[in-house]
């Protein structure tokens, strides 16, 4: 087997990990399994694509539309990503306001909120399909050549960038959650929301912060996946099971756990493609999920189920 499988797995795993972090945060703070999270990735990718469509012409007019250094995209993409992340955040906050927040206020059971997220995810995905059609779209048309990176492995500059961006974002988020006052409040709400109120924490504000972080990371993950593969309305749906499996494998609520879980799933998928065949790739996450539930339902860094 070629060592290439390692780097392929890590690259896919970085995207899954980044998406799973958002999922694990909303899971532990809002306390429900959010089936719309995959669609946030897809929406983030499409929103970024749309903005970059507008920006592209503008930047080309200014003469800075050319690809940056070794990468396949110009300054338009990072700028569009910022705008796309902002729009994705707005989308999740609206969804929380009109749907999840309403159900929370009525004291609806967790499972009702899960069901609402399931219905919303179908609707969100189909709206994307209606607006953009089911045809795949691309953030860049540039071709990239994979460079040797040692140990017989090759990767394109874009691929290496996604790994670096993931590492940077996860480190930053980890510091925020463990060191800052906002992070402290988030951990407190995840342990006991009603006690958090007694301590003087505005739980609604913490929930909004959680959506902001989750949606922002989802957008970055969606754009990374769109950059390396392609953008389709169903991309988020196809990633949803790997995201859940990664979050549960890492232990719900654990940020390093979600990243590690994502990398493990990515690697397992890459090995499956090599050994068993590409057509079984989508089943890997299910096998991992079942194994975790049998062996260690709390996950690698989990506290309680």
């Amino acid at each position: 087997m070629s060592p290439q499988v390692l780097i392929d797995g890590l690259i896919a795993g970085a995207t899954i990990g980044l998406g799973a972090i958002g999922l694990t945060l909303t899971y532990s703070i809002l306390r429900f399994a959010n089936f719309t999270h995959g669609d946030f990735l897809a929406w983030g990718a499409y929103l970024t694509l749309t903005v970059s469509g507008f920006l592209g012409g503008l930047l080309a007019g200014l003469g800075i539309g050319e690809p940056i250094g070794p990468f396949s995209f110009g300054w338009g993409l990072p700028l569009s990503l910022l705008a796309g992340a902002g729009l994705t955040i707005v989308l999740t906050l609206i969804l929380d306001k009109i749907l999840f927040g309403q159900l929370r206020r009525r004291g609806a059971d967790t499972i009702i909120i899960v069901m609402a997220s399931f219905g919303a995810s179908m609707a969100l995905r189909s709206v994307l399909e209606f607006i953009y059609t089911a045809n795949p779209q691309y953030l860049t048309r540039e071709l990239q050549i994979a460079q040797p990176v040692g140990f017989g492995m090759r990767a394109t500059p874009d691929q290496l960038l996604t790994i670096a961006v993931t590492a940077l974002l996860v480190l930053a988020l980890h510091l925020v959650v463990t060191r800052s006052s906002t992070g402290r409040s988030m951990r407190a709400v995840s342990e006991n929301p009603s006690l958090a109120g007694v301590y003087g924490i505005d739980v609604q504000r913490v929930i909004r912060v959680t959506w902001v972080i989750g949606a922002g990371l989802a957008c970055v993950a969606g754009v990374m996946s769109g950059l390396l593969v392609q953008i389709r309305p169903y991309m988020g749906f196809d990633l949803l099971l790997p995201l859940f499996a990664a979050a549960i494998l890492g232990g719900v609520g654990s940020i390093p756990g979600a990243l590690l879980g994502g990398l493990i799933i990515g690697l397992a998928e890459a090995f499956t493609v090599q050994i068993v065949g590409a057509e079984w790739r989508a089943g890997v996450a299910f096998v991992v999920l079942v194994l975790v539930l049998i062996i260690r339902p709390t996950g690698l860094f989990g506290r309680t189920v």
Partner: peptide, 22 residues
């Protein structure tokens, strides 16, 4: 999954749907 929290059943059944579809 039935022993665990309610949404684990949801996630697992979602997973089996994908696995059986494959």
């Amino acid at each position: 999954t039935i022993r665990m929290r309610s949404d684990y059943l949801a996630i697992t059944t979602f997973g089996i749907a994908i696995a059986l579809q494959l």
